[in-house]
Design a binder for these strands. Sequence first.
DNA 1: CCTTGCCTTGACGCTGACGACAAGGTTTAG
DNA 2: CTAAACCTTGTCGTCAGCGTCAAGGCAAGG
Lengths: 130, 130
Amino acid sequence: MLIGELAERAGTSTRTLRYYEAHGLVCPRRSANGYRVYDEAELRVVREIRALLDVGFGLDDVRPFVACLRAGNTSGDVCPDSVQVLRRKLAEVDDYLDRLTAVRQRLHTQLSHAIAHREETCPRKRQSGP
Amino acid sequence: MLIGELAERAGTSTRTLRYYEAHGLVCPRRSANGYRVYDEAELRVVREIRALLDVGFGLDDVRPFVACLRAGNTSGDVCPDSVQVLRRKLAEVDDYLDRLTAVRQRLHTQLSHAIAHREETCPRKRQSGP
DNA sequence: CCTTGCCTTGACGCTGACGACAAGGTTTAG
DNA sequence: CTAAACCTTGTCGTCAGCGTCAAGGCAAGG
């Protein structure tokens, strides 16, 4: 399978695949003319990468999962390193959720206050100011 | 007040203040030698900007609040445009919270599954594989 | 006069995951 | 022969909010 086919089957671009390769996530063989040749297994790898990136992982976070798949596992998340990343990411997400919830609360309060204050400040369009 | 003093009092850097100016958020007078001169009111403006950026707003989102303060209001969020931005941002945050919650759920499930699968795959260090 | 410490503009660096384009080689079909 | 449709490497651009020099002007103290 050449890069174009893999890209289409994985729902991404050739640029992206070359980018992953440059960062050591995939390492295709080369045919005589220098073309990248991927085998079927790489499709699953690329899909794993994409899925994890979509969830907010960085390329570095993805590496253990790729290695896990390469090690012959049917799923990329069953290896210790992957589990560790999962734990860390879960904690990060929890943290972010907390902060975001706090921000939400703050915005909500601010909005209510602003509206109330507006009622008070500009009850009608007329103003009696100096 | 010169730029250095404002930066320190606002808890930020001179670079940041010049950046805000370049993006039309502050517009100080200039003294004879070309130095930026800010008055006290700008301190509140800069603090408002910082507070909103910390909450995840972009510079464009901040503009209405600055204008609102400049219009003489004691608070930057009482003007219609600010309220509109607040509403939009609140909606965005709610949206993000939803997605993040979904991701959290997914990570949680994946983690449980991975650990369970690991118990199953590697109960002891020995393996009887092919 | 010299140093110190402010200030000025200008321009590049950074982070991440690519998109877009350039300039060219290869293979196949007509 | 040539066009089409693949492929190659390399380089620059993107978004945001600054950090970090660089090179120089201005003011005050010793």
